[in-house]
Design a binder for these strands. Sequence first.
DNA 1: GGCGGCATGTAAGTTGTTACATGATTAA
DNA 2: TTAATCATGTAACAACTTACATGCCGCC
Lengths: 199, 199
Amino acid sequence: MKEGKTRYVILGLLAEGPMSGYTIKKLVEARFRFFWSESYGQLYPELKALVAEGMIEALPKTGETEADRAVAAASGRGRARGRDRTVHALLPAGREALREWLARPPEREPARFEILLKMYFSGQGDRAWMDPHLRAFEAHYAGELAVLRRFEAELRRIGDPDGSHADILRVIDFGQRTYEAYLAWCRTALAEREGRTSR
Amino acid sequence: MKEGKTRYVILGLLAEGPMSGYTIKKLVEARFRFFWSESYGQLYPELKALVAEGMIEALPKTGETEADRAVAAASGRGRARGRDRTVHALLPAGREALREWLARPPEREPARFEILLKMYFSGQGDRAWMDPHLRAFEAHYAGELAVLRRFEAELRRIGDPDGSHADILRVIDFGQRTYEAYLAWCRTALAEREGRTSR
DNA sequence: GGCGGCATGTAAGTTGTTACATGATTAA
DNA sequence: TTAATCATGTAACAACTTACATGCCGCC
């Protein structure tokens, strides 16, 4: 009964303009990295299916698109055009499917934190083993938080031509708040282990 | 190359005492619900595999265990013993595997928030569609936070006979902090939307 | 010539869910 | 007697990852 969401990622991104599967992947990595991911093994078969369903159309061998310029701006490099590619464009049926999905309530997010499992069971081993795990966790999310802050600053710098920034900033805000919560938790845990007590 | 973590959930719980697959499921639901889940379709085949690997042993048709009393205490009901069951107990090899896993760094948690995807793309539909989604999100996590607070109060009430509560409280603290962050985000988003109604 | 980035795709494998089948016991 | 809870298990399916295969282009 689970529904594949890959198609809506594709449809949503194509709503901004035509782009290739490769570009979709790059954009998901750049913009959604903190709350989503897609692999080529999901992306390409889904693009094919969407074409077959009349949701999108394939426009072979097209030049640089708006989306390519967005990726290039983010990576600081132009598109060194390699192999010929297939650019996909949204069709009315696809736009309609996207809108239907937007109106439907989102599914519950299945959170799985292996670090919490280890924390819970840590008494079964040497509790000191948790320390490097916590420090790695802290370092990772401190880095991710810095990325989000740069992303936010960049968005605010370039202004809001089409009025879509409020939603994007709201999404970034989610990431910042949760990462800040992770970091505060992590630091409290580490501090407690060193002997001090808080919370 | 992905490693199933179901086995460590089993091993970790069996480290507290022998129990049945059914009891493991109940305990995962009761204690880990906010950061983990297991289905019978994963649990039973994994139990079988662990027996075959000599990690655990099956003790058929055993009476009430320590773990059953824990489940009964949480649900306020005794075990109305139904069909005969198989209680599993941890063997030295299983304890060793658990300890090895505890020492290894946890894998990155793959976060997937469909609501953020919808928020990001919300400009492609009617932005007002997000409001019920946000309210459902808020209601859900407010409820979950209340559960965690009760869980914490209960743990503090019963004292700490075997010294394992610090780790469990730390795990609960993670849930509380992240849920508080979710709620603060959600309420800010909702408030902002009310500020620019009919726009 | 090789490397790295661009670009598309597939095959195989793993993981995890859902639905179902079975059957015992107890309480309403 | 019927529902609920206890209890175990499997088959079919869906979702997703990984590794690989292919090949173009520009640069050093």
